[in-house]
Design a protein around this nucleic acid. Structure first.
Lengths: 327, 327
DNA sequence: CTGAAAGCGCTTACAG
DNA sequence: CTGAAAGCGCTTACAG
């Protein structure tokens, strides 16, 4: 029932020019006489003409759009990653929109109706096993970059999580007390293994130092679970050192310790991972990831692939860094 | 240079049928003989055929896609809102992707290249002045729903923020001490006024009770700023009551109080807004918003508009609720 | 149930 | 600098 909207033909007719000319002006082609352009622009405004994006994309073959897929939304982390991505994309007039997989339904949706991914020029996948996720629904020639997961099929950019774990282990091994690890349990088989790698590095380091890990907890990405885990840890031993595989867990742990009157660096030691702003505020020792840079590099690679650069997929691995603060 | 991908014609030819038939099978039309369908499906698989979404959208006129625009990414809040939205959209085979406006560039991008919004069937805008944001770039017949902002042009669904402020005021006025408010300063003129309304309601209530507000702080949506604000507040007066216009601020305030050894409900009182899970963990008294419901209702309205339902724009206003905990 | 054909609204050589 | 026309890859009456 919605009345047909105004098309390029309507504009052409009213402006007394060919549709080609109208097309040129809306695409800012330099090959239009200024006077013609001005006139066409006026008619466009009068008619309230808005080019149909589907038609444009069908004939031009591109959209200047990128899809970004990732598991849960972790506000600050993604804002940083995406800012990095934006900084690369903007230069070429691209932008990205997001498709977070925070529910089962969303997992199946991407896999079943790849349609909306195919409707963009490229795909960035964060912290997910792209190789399994994409399967046969994405054509071979679709430009894809994997972040925080080392793909076998596509270019990847990630941080050396194992080494990050080593750094945390080397730091925490200096202190007395029982050693605990609080890590993330994958909620989907498709999530990447970054957490496992961090833990593996940590284990490696701790063992090299001749220490033992008392217990490893694996929980969901959830404040409350981390809080309750802290409760368990501190009920076992007041004197302890804890590696939280993400700052997101480090906060509630510190918080709980404070509630029961424990003092960081005296009663316990704690090292997080990520270096989110909250670890700065709370003065939590952590492993810093270059998040913005990951996004930026991923964007650059993606753009190159879209532009036709072909090469064997390779991985770019950035180094994490220990930031010692007051825990 | 990328080799032309396989089209519906290729499939038709190889399967020995017309393109119409291929179209019918990929669209799951019931008017295809099972045998034909099976055969075509086989050929599709052999050829690795993937329908071109742009062509589909151009001729069918729809995408079953919704754009969701909102300011910064606040992990949990949006995950809830979007889950509500999903629950409405999924029933009709729709899904939404996100376009957060966390940077200046993104603001101008939506406004300049409305293109990618027009490429979807509908638009959900959260916590933004839609009326100004959309201006002339969105055609009049585009289905739009506004959440957390009362639009003059479109349907809106929101919580009665003023009343929420009243609830907070009625609660906090019971306690002695200087009264402070920590609210959000808009980072863009286009952000909605929910925070202002909460504060207005709070002021109204407090004045009715014959009390006075000592100071109102307006800060960015940032842990550190809230933390530092708490520092200022507590350096003025140890005995105080604080209204944090979002739980996001309530946490660092509580945290700071704890660091300097203050005890909630004894030394100070605190009421947040939103009822995010962290306020539950930290036992912060707060004003609960029905976030999921907002998303769900918005989705239902959007769907109806897409389906052609036309009516005057109206607002649906939900009631917030005081949740008394240990602050 | 199926095929041939028109049409969706653009872009882009091509010829002038 | 500009117009007429082919083409992008589908969907959908229409006729059979």
């Amino acid at each position: 029932m919605k009345k047909r909207s105004v098309t390029i033909k309507d504009v052409a007719k009213k402006a007394g020019v060919g549709v080609g000319t109208v097309s040129r002006v809306i695409n800012n082609s330099p090959h239009v006489k200024p006077k013609t352009k001005e006139h066409v622009l006026k008619v466009i405004k009068e008619l309230g003409y808005l080019p149909n994006p589907h038609a444009r994309r069908l004939s031009s073959g591109h959209t200047r759009l990128i899809t970004t897929i990732f598991p849960q939304m972790v506000g600050e982390f993604h804002q940083l990653l995406l800012s990095g991505l934006d900084s690369a994309l903007e230069k070429e007039g691209y932008t990205s929109f997001l498709y977070p997989l925070y529910s089962e339904n969303r997992y199946s949706f991407v896999q079943e109706s790849s349609d909306f991914v195919l409707g963009t020029d490229g795909l960035l996948v964060d912290a997910l096993n792209v190789d399994k996720l994409l399967s046969s629904f994405i054509p071979k020639n679709m430009p894809v970059v994997s972040v925080e997961y080392e793909s076998e099929t596509y270019d990847s950019v990630l941080v050396d999580n194992f080494y990050g774990g080593i750094l945390a282990g080397d730091y925490l091994s200096n202190f007395d007390g029982e050693i605990y690890v609080v890590s993330h349990r994958k909620e989907s088989k498709l999530e990447s293994t970054v957490f496992q790698e961090r833990v593996n590095g940590f284990i490696e380091s701790v063992e090299r130092k001749g220490r033992k890990i008392t217990k490893i907890f694996e929980i969901q990405l959830d404040w409350l679970q981390a809080f309750n885990t802290a409760k368990k840890i501190f009920s076992n031993s007041k004197k302890c050192v804890i590696f939280a595989a993400t700052d997101y867990f480090a906060f509630p742990i510190l918080e709980y310790a404070r509630v029961i009157g424990l003092e960081p660096k005296k009663d316990f030691h704690l090292c997080g991972f990520d270096n989110l702003s909250l670890s700065d505020i709370l003065n939590i020792t952590t492993i810093k990831q270059p998040i913005f840079e990951m996004g930026e590099i991923a964007g650059q690679i993606l753009l190159r692939k879209i532009q036709g650069y072909i090469r064997k997929p390779q991985s770019i691995v950035l180094k994490p860094e220990l930031i010692v603060r007051k825990t």
